[in-house]
């Protein structure tokens, strides 16, 4: 089968480029760059998302309204547009040229942070009111109640959704290709530009690679969701009446 052997040959000749880009002779790229960008992106977006979620739940309008505006702006504007904003605004504001990696990372933190804040907010609102009341009755202030009672439970329940957002982040890093961030999609395009004759094989390999990574993480999120649901439901009720 020529398609299969062609694809195999492309992988054999280019696996290093797909894996780490031109590293160590150039910048780190390929899957490694995709994963590092995604992990840093979601890792830095997470604290931001908690702050935005708390601001949206606040009674103070000067906290709530900017957070609301951020969330709606990010939900309504294409990621590509935000990338271009950061791409040209950052050098203008900082006065130095900013590498593509940093541009992409900042964009991801902003974009995923806004989406994740909706997840965190839903997690906080899904907890029964009694949790906050009980924490306050025990003498916690608002901050202490959030810190020690509400957030630990809400974030634990939200773990599967956070993992899904991580999958979205991986998929969103592909847009770095447009501003020449040397991640996986960029590497595949480099290979395609060099071979020229096997575009189907190259992009099929690219698609299947993303599929393998994202599918396993999606499955992990599904497993986590059912095991958390099982844990929250508590141990199975004891059968009081023996079956005949």
């Amino acid at each position: 089968m020529s398609l299969f052997s062609n694809a195999l040959e492309i992988v054999r000749d280019n696996w290093l480029l797909l894996l780490v880009g031109q590293y160590p002779n150039g910048p780190l790229g390929g899957i490694a760059a995709t994963l590092i960008l995604s992990v840093l992106g979601i890792g830095l977006a997470f604290p931001l998302s908690v702050l935005v979620a708390l601001a949206r739940l606040s009674h103070r309008a000067w906290l709530r309204l900017p957070a609301l505006a951020l969330v709606y702006a990010v939900r309504g504007v294409p990621l590509l547009m935000i990338i271009f904003w950061v791409y040209f605004m950052f050098p203008l504001l900082l006065g130095v040229s900013v590498p593509g990696y940093a541009t992409m990372l900042c964009t991801l933190v902003l974009y995923e942070g806004a989406f994740l804040s909706e997840v965190v907010r839903a997690g906080i609102e899904a907890l029964p009111r009694g949790q906050m009341d009980a924490a306050r009755a025990l003498g916690h202030g608002y901050g202490g109640a959030m810190r020690f009672v509400i957030l630990p439970q809400a974030l634990y329940n939200m773990l599967p959704s956070i993992l899904s957002q991580f999958v979205s982040t991986i998929k969103d890093t592909t847009l770095g290709y447009v501003i020449n961030v040397p991640e996986l999609t960029f590497a595949a395009n480099q290979i395609n530009n060099r071979l020229l004759t096997k575009p189907f094989e190259v992009f099929l390999i690219l698609a299947l690679t993303y599929y393998a990574v994202c599918f396993s993480l999606t499955r992990l999120a599904g497993w986590l969701e059912s095991s958390i649901a099982a844990r929250r439901a508590g141990p199975a009720p004891v059968q009081l009446v023996a079956a005949q």
Partner: peptide, 15 residues
């Protein structure tokens, strides 16, 4: 759902 939309576009248009 697990392959980035941009990659799907590229697979169609180039591949």
């Amino acid at each position: 759902r697990n392959v980035p939309t941009l990659v799907q576009l590229m697979l169609w248009y180039f591949g």
